[in-house]
Design a protein around this nucleic acid. Structure first.
Length: 927
RNA sequence: GCGGAUGUGGCGGAAUUGGUAGACGCGCUAGACUUAGGAUCUAGUGCCGCAAGGCGUGGGGGUUCGAGUCCCUUCAUCCGCACCA
């Protein structure tokens, strides 16, 4: 029998489908394990060879866990709302659901061919009303909750109303926008509308005027993580700042828990660090500076509040700076400086956000004429404005300490402002001393203290005199949740008298309406403005925005636990059983978007008792990117003549990308090349001595335009899915980026055929022996079982593939065809190459399927050898290898060594100064 | 600038705790069988050298009987953040 992968793979994929092999249900008799892939956005281009890398790894892990006796949840679905389908709809008029449906079908076909063990009965699609009903449901819950800073968790808004009725809001410590204090009596007197406006400031999903990232080309706002360097991540269009009324989610309320929670997670350090940076918690103090009254400014001079992480350097403050956008700028500028300030403001406004970010070297600023009063020394501090201070961070104002902050130093030098050293340890004539260590000087009551102590003391003194307080500040902003687009979840929100109200849960799902065009209306409303009867039954208008991409992906892992439940997002029973994701595999591009938002949603759902775990993803692994390996041909300039790689340097050539699919081992298939592009049909070639045309290569992004895209379908067509799976793993460590080079695939293909051949004799007949295996055979087997088990556990799947190769090579050399050996080998291979394993498992006479087998136990008896080969080194350099019985002690070995003539040869005449014997490992002789 | 990661043959990579550097595979070289083929099998393959031997994990230094692995320093590449007070 030949190894005909196409028949075998088809056969078993059908078997799995017909027998629902991968369907799982909650089974309390078994321990659970939840393995999740980041679900894909089904794009029109289909999967290339890089996409399934993570899916294959997680599939191997899932199949392995199942063999180890776990009840494994391993689902897949689609992140199906999104911009590309909608952009396509705008261009062609085709409804995005059709595009999406087609793309999903293609993805599914491609995935099915790879032989994944997904339980497709649990599939979710974010654009399915039965699914987004629950996205809308969570939104309603967010709307109905506020965050109590005292308890550190979300609480129902009713409780807040009750407190307002009893005591007003003075005892409430909530995560919220600034809200004026009111008493119970004042609350009672407010109109329904005013009460709602107050509550809106407390809700976890709230409507507010905010500066947003507006992308005119896409006609929508974007979240911070969807903007890269001032351009939209999708499409690369310019993004500008604009004030708009938008829905926001109060992620900032959870900032602390999001940072602290990271410590308990098994995520890699760089990812945790990215999240910490994104959240950007810094501990410091808010300090209030009174202004000295100056001629021409109002009597009730305002107070400037600054945020600083270095309150210890307060006596080093020699001036102050406000962001140009700061609300006090207008108020405090003295008449004398009005004109200069105005022209400075105009100039900064002209520079785009991007220019301001890119150009950090040019120092600009303008004195306002105002002076602030130092809270301790009463010193007069000039107040400047400059765009090096950001309006969006802290309070938009700083106390400048040029001696201990690089930017302040540069500014002070530029405008010739005083620099006063207050922490010893640096040389302030050369530059600022920013380090957080040293002894305080020139600082009155702080003198002599270390920085750490001085920070505490300074805050205590500020609090005592009422000029400041301790404060933790975050870089993280609340997430803007409105998109002025069509292809997304409609908000379950209607407006009464301009005030937003949410629908009742039993009115869900609020289904996305049909529109005749996907463009904004003439009034500039989002596309939903075109929908007919977009009102509640009572006639109240519904929200016109839709939700962003991260809405549907924020709780999808919960829905897989209980996908058909139409009463709850997830039942308590299912959630208690599956708890949370044990292993999550996906790309690093979601580090600050999806992975923050879903942690936030999960924590909220945990607070409200919907889920039992406060973190969604216990262990997370980022698979590396698969890069393309491009091939080049070299055309002699001004001709249609191509010169081979090694000869190209003697000609004046232009390198041109050539389709990697018509190049094998860097040798060009000239016939295919001629057919590839009519332009080359009569091309001429200057060949190598051996008559071949050699191409050059480079590692680049895998992209259509570079002709280096390799599709899994083509590989499967040629080598089969098992080979694809093995080769993707064999390429290198899962987390590392590496180039795809189809050239190497023959190696794993040969391995599979060698494995197959172990079962057949020379005449190609099935030939399995029931004889007892030899110790040698058992040693090979058990060594491999141990290695594979350890490798899979730490996701070192590239090394398991080589372990299999070694094992099969060794068994092949022994012509081993013992059932006891082969049947266990098939089981351990099955997570990697499931199709061939199923076939061999059946040929061994077992009932299908191998997925029901158990992972074989390692017998330690077969792991140890009677003799150990010791490498013997002299002064650390290995010279010879000598066998000693495994039970020999150090002394025995030493004795024998000195008798060994080879050793004596290396010793020459001298006696060894020292002999180091590490039992079972090595001998080192010092001479 | 800050933070993180990575540097090992012609190539992808291995070496899990400081203990034989280069496993496994590709490629290459030679040979065998051959309906000269992008098939299969066998042997070889880090570098220098005819050899003995020497050198070798980005560079330099250190700790150690012994360093790819630990420490210091430096360079390069990639990724993230970036005037964050």
């Amino acid at each position: 029998m030949e190894y005909i992968f196409s028949e075998i793979e088809k056969k078993w994929q059908e078997y799995w489908r017909e027998n629902h092999t991968f369907k799982v249900t909650e089974d309390p008799s078994k321990p659970k394990y939840y393995v999740l892939d980041m679900f894909p956005y089904p794009s029109g281009a289909g999967l290339h060879v890089g996409h399934p890398l993570g899916y294959i790894a997680s599939d191997i892990y899932s199949r392995f866990k199942k063999l180890k006796g776990f009840n494994v949840l391993h689902p897949m679905g689609y992140d199906a709302f999104g911009l590309p389908a909608e952009q396509y709809a705008i261009q062609t008029g085709q409804h995005p659901s059709i595009t999406t449906e087609n793309n999903i079908r293609r993805y599914r076909e491609q995935m099915d061919k790879i032989g994944f063990s997904y339980d497709w009965s649990r599939e979710v699609r974010t654009c399915d009303p039965d699914y987004y009903k629950w996205t809308q449901w969570v939104f309603i819950q967010l709307f109905r909750h506020w965050f109590n800073n005292r308890s550190g968790k979300a609480e129902p808004i009713e409780a807040l109303v009750w407190e307002f009725e009893k005591n007003g809001n003075s005892n409430v410590d909530a995560a919220q926008d600034s809200c004026e204090k009111f008493s119970a009596a004042q609350w009672e007197k407010m109109s329904e509308k005013d009460q709602q406006l107050v509550l809106l400031k407390y809700r976890l999903a709230y409507l507010a005027d905010t500066m947003v990232n507006w992308c005119p080309k896409l006609g929508t706002v974007l979240a911070n993580d969807e903007v890269k360097d001032g351009y939209s991540e999708r499409g690369g269009y310019p993004v500008e700042q604009k004030e708009m009324k938008q829905w926001l989610l109060r992620v900032t309320a959870y900032a602390d828990r999001l940072v602290d929670g990271l410590d308990k997670l098994e995520w890699n350090d760089s990812l945790k660090e990215m999240q910490r940076n994104w959240i950007g918690r810094s501990e410091g103090a808010v300090i209030r500076f009174n202004l000295y009254p100056s001629a021409g400014t109002p009597e009730d001079t305002p107070i400037i509040e600054v945020f600083t992480t270095r309150p210890d350097t307060i006596f080093g403050c020699t001036y102050m700076v406000l962001a140009p956008e700061h609300e006090l700028v207008e108020k405090i500028t003295t008449p004398q400086y009005k004109n200069q300030v105005r022209s400075y403001l105009e100039e900064t406004k002209k520079r785009t956000e991007r220019e301001r970010m890119a150009d950090t070297k040019t120092i600009t600023g303008q004195f306002t004429g105002a002076h602030a009063k130092h809270p301790f020394s009463d010193e007069k501090l000039p107040v400047w404005i400059s765009d090096y201070v950001l309006a969006g961070y802290g309070t938009g104002a700083i106390m400048a300490v040029p001696a201990h902050d690089g930017r302040d130093y540069a500014f002070a030098k530029h405008f010739d402002l005083p620099v006063r050293e207050v922490v010893s340890g640096g040389d302030i004539s050369q530059g600022s001393y920013d380090a957080k260590s040293g002894i305080l000087i020139n600082s009155e009551f702080l003198n002599g203290l270390e920085v750490e102590g001085a920070i505490k003391k300074a805050i205590a003194e500020l609090e005592k005199c009422g000029n400041g307080y301790k404060k933790i500040n975050y870089r993280l902003r609340d997430a803007i949740f409105s998109r002025q687009r069509y292809w997304g979840e409609p908000f379950p929100v209607y407006y009464k008298d301009g005030i937003p109200y949410v629908l009742d849960e039993d009115e869900l799902p609020l289904v996305l309406p049909e529109v005749e065009s996907y463009l904004p209306t003439q009034k500039g409303e989002p596309p939903l403005g075109r929908a007919k009867n977009w009102n509640t039954p009572e006639g109240y208008p519904l929200e016109l925005s839709t939700m962003p991409g991260f809405a549907g992906s924020s709780a999808y892992y919960l829905r897989y636990m209980d996908p058909d439940n139409d009463q709850e997002l997830v039942s308590k029973k299912a959630n208690r059983y599956w708890e949370n994701v044990d292993l999550y595999i996906g790309g690093t591009e979601h580090a600050t978007g999806h992975l923050i938002y879903s942690r936030f949603w999960n924590k909220f759902l945990y607070d409200t008792g919907v889920v039992c775990k406060d973190e969604p993803f216990k262990k997370l692994v980022n698979q590396g990117m698969i890069q393309g390996r491009s091939n080049f041909v070299y055309r002699i300039k001004g001709s249609n003549k191509f010169v081979s790689h090694r000869l190209k340097d003697s000609y004046n050539v232009t390198p041109l990308h050539v389709d990697v699919n018509i190049v094998h081992n860097d040798i060009l298939d000239i016939e295919s090349f001629r057919k590839w592009n009519p332009e080359y049909s009569d091309a001429e070639f200057i060949l190598e001595e051996d008559g071949t045309y050699r191409c050059g290569y480079a590692v680049e992004k895998m992209s259509k335009s570079l002709y280096n895209v390799v599709n899994p379908d083509e590989i499967i067509e040629q080598y089969g899915a098992d080979t694809l799976r093995l080769y993707e793993m064999f390429l290198g460590p899962l987390e590392q980026s590496k180039p795809w080079d189809t050239n190497g695939i023959e190696g794993v293909y040969k391995f599979l055929r060698k494995l197959w051949k172990l079962f057949f004799n020379e005449k190609n007949e099935l030939d399995i022996s029931d004889e007892k295996p030899t110790t040698g055979e058992l040693k090979i087997l058990h060594k491999t079982i141990k290695k594979i088990e350890e490798d899979i556990e730490r996701l070192s799947l590239n090394t398991s593939v080589s372990a299999f190769m070694i094992c099969v090579n060794e068994l092949g050399a022994m012509k081993c065809n013992k059932r006891e050996i082969l049947s266990r080998l098939v089981v351990i291979v099955s997570p990697f190459a499931p199709h061939i394993s199923e076939e061999l498992w059946q040929l061994l006479g077992n009932n299908p399927s191998v997925t029901g087998a158990s992972f074989p136990e390692v017998n330690p008896v077969f792991l140890s050898d009677d003799t150990i080969q010791y490498p013997v080194s002299f002064n650390g350099k290995t010279r010879l290898k000598i066998d000693f019985p495994a039970d020999y002690e150090k002394e025995d070995i030493e004795k024998e060594l000195l008798k060994n003539e080879n050793v004596l040869k290396y010793l020459k005449d001298g006696t060894p100064r020292k002999i180091i014997v590490v039992k079972g490992r090595i001998v080192n002789i010092v001479v």
